[in-house]
Design a protein around this nucleic acid. Structure first.
Lengths: 138, 138
DNA sequence: GCACTGCGCTTGCAACTGCTAGCGCCGGCA
DNA sequence: TGCCGGCGCTAGCAGTTGCAAGCGCAGTGC
C-alpha cells in the first residue's frame, strides 16, 4: 500500500522548509502588533534568543512553543499550526460549510455572512495574488 | 475573547502531565481500530518503540509525530492536539472554529466576521429565547 | 565624554526527542 | 521438539530544542 512514503517524506521534508515560513509569519504578526522581539518573548514565555532564531527560521519550535507565541500575539494557534505545516489547511469550504450548517442563523443571515466572507477573500486575493499564506494586514 | 483561560493554564501547566492522557487516547483509538502497535507505527511512519513510549506517557511527541499518528489512525489531527493540550477545545461552534482556522483572512477580518456572527445570534436569541440551545455538533 | 537601558543576535550547554539494535514472551507449524 | 514471526518493551545513541550568559549597537540623560 505505501509504495512510496510520500506523506511522511513530505511532512519531514516540508517542515524543514516551512520553518522559514512560520518564522516570517510570526515576525510579520509581531511587527503588525508593534511589539519588540523581547516583549513578545516575555509575553509568550520563551527566551528571546530562541524566539529570534524561530523568526529567522533557524529553529523549528515545538507545538507548545507555537501555542505560547500564538497567545502572546493574540492570534489563533491553528493559524500558526497551519503555517508550520502540522495542521491541514482548512480552505474556505470549511467556513462556508459551517455557516450553512448553522441552525441558529436565518437563511438571509447566512447569505450576509457568506457575502462578507467572500468579499474579504477577494480583497486579500487581489492584494497578494499568489501567496495567500502571508498576512499583510494594514 | 479568552474568557476561558483555564484551558490555557492547563495547557501550559499540565503539558507534562497530559503526556499520559494523549497516550491513553492514542492507545484507545488504536485498540478500537484493532491494529497492533507495530502496525500503527509503520502506518504513522514512526518507530514502534517510540510509539510505545508515547502511549505509556513516557515521551511527549512533537506535533509532526502527532500528525503522523493521526493520519495512521485516520482521525483528525485536531482531536489529538486538543488531547495533547496544544490546541484549545472548540467552544464557539463550527462557525467560529472555521473562521479562526481560516488562513486566508487577516485577524482583523476574522474579528469582523465573528462580530457579525455574534450579532446575528444575539438577535435571534432575543426573538426566540427558549429553544435555541441545541447541540449543533455531532 | 559616559553610564544606562533596550534592541536583536551568537555562543555553549542541559534536556529532550526519535531512532536502531536487541531483549523476553507467546502462538502457529513442520 | 525446535523454529519462525509477531508482539510490546528496554537500552543506548545522534540530533534537536530551548535556555542562560554575553556580545555589539543605537538612543537617552547627566
Amino acid at each position: 500500500m505505501d509504495s512510496k512514503r510520500s506523506v511522511a517524506d513530505q511532512a519531514v521534508d516540508a517542515v524543514a522548509d516551512l520553518g522559514r515560513d512560520i518564522g516570517d509569519y510570526i515576525r510579520e504578526q509581531r511587527s503588525t502588533a508593534q511589539i519588540s522581539l523581547r516583549q513578545l518573548a516575555k509575553l509568550a514565555g520563551v527566551s528571546n534568543p530562541y524566539l529570534s532564531q524561530i523568526e529567522r527560521g533557524l529553529r523549528k519550535p515545538s507545538a507548545e512553543i507555537l501555542q505560547q507565541i500564538a497567545k502572546g500575539l493574540r492570534i489563533s494557534a491553528e493559524a500558526l499550526y497551519v503555517q508550520a505545516g502540522i495542521l491541514e489547511q482548512r480552505v474556505g469550504g470549511a467556513v462556508v460549510d459551517a455557516v450553512l450548517a448553522d441552525t441558529e442563523l436565518t437563511e438571509r443571515q447566512k447569505q450576509v455572512l457568506l457575502d462578507v466572507y467572500e468579499t474579504f477573500r477577494r480583497e486579500n486575493a487581489a492584494k497578494r495574488p499568489a501567496d495567500a499564506t502571508e498576512d499583510t494586514e494594514e
